[in-house]
Simulated scan of single mutants.
Amino acid sequence: MRLASAGRRLALAIALPALSVGTVDARAGGRPGDFDFYVLSLSWSPTYCRSRGERADPTQCSTGARAFVMHGLWPQYARGFPSDCRTTGRNPTRAQVDSMLEIMPSPGLVRHEWRTHGTCSGLDPASYFALARAANAKVTIPPAFQTADRDLDTSPGDVERAFIAVNPRLQPSMIAVQCDGGLVSEVRICMTPDLAFRPCAEIDRRACRSSRVTLPSIDQQ
């Protein structure tokens, strides 16, 4: 039995006081709230900007662009994931979208993530975004990856170990580094609906297999 209800309770509790997944095939039109766990995807922004070139979102790649940014919080099945679920609720308001720009790079990405993934969470926009902010806040970015003022040559294993070192309870089976042409593109971290770190074999199997990778600097976008 899937456990999205616990995630709904947590998101509502948080809310009241105040880049496509690419893992395995999506199941468009899944049932909102029917999933097994979440993937928190953190994108290395300079890789996106370099690989997309003129097609990149200028908001994300302008002066002052960041290093790791939140790509999204994705409901997942043990194999595969739901996508673009049909809901009867309203789309996010401009204020709700703007509330995410502290951790996500552009309004266009925020809206895309809601349409593709948020609609499958079983949550309304305000609660989903509150849960996404809580998931993002749960993960500490290693000091070496908090800026992107120079190229960093490393390995996928070293990136994982750096995250594990500063995030208690995170284990190798719960995190996967993604790469694109030898450049680190994302770090994906698996969480329960209550945002506890959890293993995810399918995500781990699709991790970067390069022996050496680079986190490019902002200056080379």
Rank of each mutant, 00 (worst) to 15 (best):
P32Q: 06
Q60H: 05
S45G: 03
P32T: 06
P58G: 05
Q60F: 07
G53L: 08
P58E: 15
R55T: 13
C49R: 10
S43H: 09
V39R: 01
L42D: 02
A56M: 07
S51R: 15
Y38E: 02
Y38G: 04
E54K: 15
Q60W: 06
Y38H: 04
R52N: 07
P46Y: 14
P58C: 12
Y38C: 01
S45I: 07
G53T: 14
Y38D: 04
R55Q: 11
T47K: 06
Y48R: 05
G53M: 11
R50V: 06
F37R: 15
S45C: 11
T59Q: 15
D57Y: 03
R50E: 08
E54V: 13
P32R: 08
Q60Y: 02
C49F: 04
S45R: 03
R50H: 08
Y38L: 09
D57L: 05
P58T: 03
F37D: 10
V39N: 00
E54R: 15
D36G: 00
S51E: 14
Y48E: 03
S45P: 00
P32L: 08
Y38R: 07
R55V: 01
D34V: 04
D34R: 11
T59D: 14
V39T: 14
P32M: 13
F37G: 01
S51G: 00
G33Y: 10
G33A: 12
G33D: 12
S43L: 10
S41D: 02
E54N: 11
T59N: 08
P32H: 10
G33N: 10
E54C: 07
R52K: 13
Y38A: 06
E54I: 14
G53K: 06
S51Y: 09
L40W: 14
V39C: 00
F35S: 03
S41K: 14
G33L: 01
R50L: 12
R50Q: 05
S43Y: 04
G53F: 09
P58Q: 03
Y48K: 11
F37I: 01
D34N: 09
W44T: 05
L42Q: 14
D34H: 07
P32E: 15
L40Y: 11
V39D: 01
R31D: 09
W44H: 09
R55E: 12
G53A: 02
Y48G: 00
R50T: 11
F37T: 01
W44I: 07
W44D: 02
R52P: 00
F35T: 11
R50F: 14
S43I: 13
C49D: 01
C49A: 04
G53S: 04
S51M: 15
D34A: 09
G33H: 11
G33E: 10
W44R: 10
S51D: 07
S43N: 14
P58V: 10
R50S: 03
R31I: 04
P46G: 09
P46H: 07
G53D: 03
D57A: 12
Y48A: 01
A56Q: 04
G53Y: 12
D57N: 15
D57E: 12
R52H: 13
C49Y: 04
D36M: 04
S41Y: 02
P58S: 08
T59F: 03
Y38P: 00
R52W: 03
T47S: 13
E54A: 14
Q60G: 02
G33F: 06
R50Y: 15
T47L: 08
W44Y: 12
